[in-house]
Nucleic acid binder design. Structure first.
Lengths: 223, 223
DNA sequence: CATGTCTGGCTGTCAGACAATCGGCAACGT
DNA sequence: ACGTTGCCGATTGTCTGACAGCCAGACATG
C-alpha cells in the first residue's frame, strides 16, 4: 500500500467547515458552564458573539440539540439542557452498557500498539490524579484511544453524545475529593483485562467503573 | 382536574413546525427505500420536491445526519448512509444493550395498564405474523408502548436513532420467511417476564430476541 | 498519453425581510 | 384590589436572492 507513505486515513480534514468550528465553540461553552443549564440561547446574540450568520447558528443549534446538549422548545427557542436525576441515572446506565461494549470491541479489534497507548493513557490519568496535570484532558485522551481502537462509527457517535451529557451533569455535581485516584485504579483494572485480552473481564471492570462514578455523582446530585 | 376536559397531555402538538414535517417526509423516504443507501441528496432537488427553502432543507439534513440516516461529506453534501457489516453488528449489539435497559426501566416504572398495553401490542404482532395485518406497524406500536412506559428521554432518543438505522439495514437485507412468528414468540417471552415484574428475565429475553434478529439479518447481509 | 485548464453543478455562508407566536405589561372594568 | 383584555416587543420560523469556493468531469495541449 502506498497509503502508508501518506498516513493511511482518508485525510484528516484540515480546514473544518465554519459550522463545525462554531459548534465546537458553543459546545465548549456549555461544557465549561459558561452557559448554564436552563439558560436560553438567543439566535441573535449568538450571531453577534460568534460573528456568523443566523442560518449557521441555527444549524449549529440543531446539531447540539441532536447531541442532547440543548433542548429546543417550539416557538421559544433553544436552552441548555438541564437533566433530571432520573435522566442522569439512565444516562450513566446507558454509558455503562455501551462502554462495556466498546471495550469488548477494543479487545477484539485493537492492535498491540493501541493497547500500549491505552496503558499509557491510564498511567497519565493516575499521574494527574496523584500529582499534577490536566485530569479532564487525560481522561479525554483515554477515551480517544479507546474509541479509536474499538473502531465503530455508530458506537463512537452515540457514546460521544452520552459523554457530553455526563459532563453536563458534572456541571451540577462535581469533583469529590478522593475520587480521581479511585477512578484511575478502576480504569487500570480495565486495561489489565484488556492486556490479558479478556473481553468479559474488561467489560465487567468497565461497568463497575461507571456504576461507581454514577454513584458518587448522583450522591452529589440528590445530597 | 379541568385538564380531563381537554385531554390531559401537555398538548399533542397539532401543527408541527414545517421543518419537522419535512424531516419526517425525508426520513420516511429513506426508510421506505425510495431513497437508496449511497444516493446523494441534492439540496436544490429537495427544495423543489418538498416546496421549502434551502435553509429549511439544510436544517433537516443536519437533523437526519445526527440520527445517522444520512452522511455528510464536506464540500460534497449529504448522501443516504450505507452501513458496513461491522457497523450493522455493532448497531444490533448496542440495541440489545439499550433495549434490555429500557425493558428494565419499563418493569420499574410502568403501571399495570401500560403492561396490559404491552401485552396487547405483542398479541397484535403475533396476529399480524400469522394471519394478516401491518406487521411493521404492529412492531412500531410495540416499541411505542415500551418507550412510553420506560419513560426516559435520553433512552428514547438514542434508541429511536438506532432503530432507524436498523430499518436502514432492513433495506439491504429483508424478510426471512418464518421469522415474524419467531419474533412474536420471543417478544411474548419479554412480556411474560415483564408481567411477572422480573426485570432480569425480561432483559435477558430482550437481548435474546435482538441477538436472534441480528443473526438472521447479518446472515442475509453476508450470504 | 499525460498533464494542464475550463466550466458547470453544488455546497457553504451571508444579509435582509416578513409573518406568526409567545410573554409580559399596562389599561380596564368590576 | 383583582382578574380580564388587549396590545407590544422580542424571538423564532421561514423565504428569497446572492456570491465565493470546491469538486469532478470535459476539453484542450504538449
Amino acid at each position: 500500500m502506498t497509503s502508508s507513505v501518506w498516513g493511511s486515513e482518508p485525510l484528516p480534514r484540515v480546514a473544518a467547515p465554519l459550522r463545525e468550528q462554531v459548534t465546537d465553540r458553543v459546545r465548549s461553552a456549555i461544557l465549561d458552564l459558561r452557559l448554564k443549564p436552563g439558560e436560553r440561547l438567543i439566535e441573535r446574540e449568538l450571531t453577534e458573539n460568534l460573528g456568523v450568520s443566523r442560518a449557521t447558528v441555527r444549524e449549529v443549534i440543531r446539531q447540539l440539540a441532536a447531541e442532547g446538549l440543548v433542548t429546543v422548545v417550539p416557538q421559544r427557542g433553544a436552552e441548555v439542557t438541564s437533566l433530571s436525576a432520573s435522566d442522569a441515572a439512565d444516562i450513566y446506565e446507558m454509558r455503562a452498557s455501551l462502554e462495556a461494549l466498546a471495550v469488548r470491541r477494543f479487545v477484539q479489534r485493537a492492535g498491540d500498539d493501541e493497547v500500549r497507548a491505552l496503558r499509557r493513557a491510564v498511567d497519565e490519568i493516575a499521574r494527574s490524579a496523584a500529582g499534577e496535570g490536566d485530569h479532564l484532558g487525560a481522561k479525554d485522551r483515554f477515551y480517544e484511544v479507546l474509541m479509536a481502537g474499538s473502531a465503530s462509527g455508530p458506537l463512537q457517535q452515540t457514546l460521544a453524545g452520552l459523554q457530553a451529557r455526563v459532563r453536563l451533569l458534572r456541571a451540577t455535581s462535581l469533583s469529590v475529593p478522593g475520587r480521581p485516584a479511585e477512578a484511575a485504579e478502576e480504569l487500570r483494572a480495565v486495561v489489565d483485562a484488556v492486556e490479558a485480552r479478556d473481553a468479559d473481564a474488561a467489560a465487567d471492570a468497565c461497568v463497575r467503573h461507571i456504576r461507581h462514578a454514577a454513584a458518587t455523582a448522583t450522591a452529589q446530585l440528590t445530597g
